[in-house]
Amino acid sequence: MAQVSDKPKFVTREEVKMPPLKELTSMRDKIAPGHRLCTGCVAGTILRQMFMAAEAADYTLIIANATGCVEVCTSIYPYTSWKVPWIHNAFENAAATITGVEAAYKALKKKGMLPSDKKVKFVALAGDGGTYDIGFQSLSGAFERNHDFIYVCYDNEAYMNTGIQRSSATPRHASTTTQPAGKVIPGKPQPKKWMPEIAVAHGIPYVAQLAPSNFNDFFKKFTKALNTEGPSYLNIFCTCPRGWRAKEEEGILISKLAVETNYWPLFEVENGSWKINYKPKERKSVVEFLKKQGRFKHMFKSGNEHLIEELQQDVDKRWERLLKLEQL
């Protein structure tokens, strides 16, 4: 296990220089095309942006992927889209699996049996179901044991791989196949679980929320996670055109709107200190975000105005809490 150091040192935000995109284009993509993610699935963009940061920092990612869209679509035998070492074990154990790999790394290093001495970083990759729900215990245990790894959650706010069932990451009133918007119950009654703060509560050195639309911020945060000793948790917004009933070309736009409406604030937490990385000059109404997506369509019917109001309150409450946390 990693030595528990009081306060790991961070590469500061200013120290992370994102090279011009043009320079990054010369790097080799570590995720090959031919994967079968849906048309317009932003998870593909997220993976590419992860590898951009890793390549620029000269890290090889070793990935444990929970069952889910990305896992299924990138590893249909005999094809793999991965150009880095990759393992899928099951749905609920990406964190336990990657910490096993990390422990093996330490053990084999001690024995002088490592096949390579290049820089590696261990990554657990899971959707919101594999993170907020079924993988929660495994994730919590891995954080507490203080392994050196990055946990990446691509959060598309429902079980998309199995057919758009609600998860604890689904926002209030969103329509899913297991909590459809009906005449009596208008979608999911409960608000979204606030995962980042749960991660912070473990006392891990780095937690951040990212959105692929804001690739500069994404690059910096991923680079910081790479350079963090101990566990990092990255909560990444992932538009799902299929599950959200959105237009295929609007995945990045929706990501932008999520950030601009404060639905998906960009922040980071270093050793427990909160910092909001982007404060929209003019806060847009959450309506701008909602109206692009069929999963919220019922909220716009007359008589349902309160549903929008309630979701707006969820967003405002979280933003106000963030502002307070930042003052701590």
Partner: peptide
């Protein structure tokens, strides 16, 4: 087929149809 052999990256546990 070690996951730590980064020069020869392997995919473990794919989906077999």
């Amino acid at each position: 087929h070690s996951l730590l052999d980064i020069d020869n990256p392997v995919t473990h546990g794919p989906i077999a149809m």
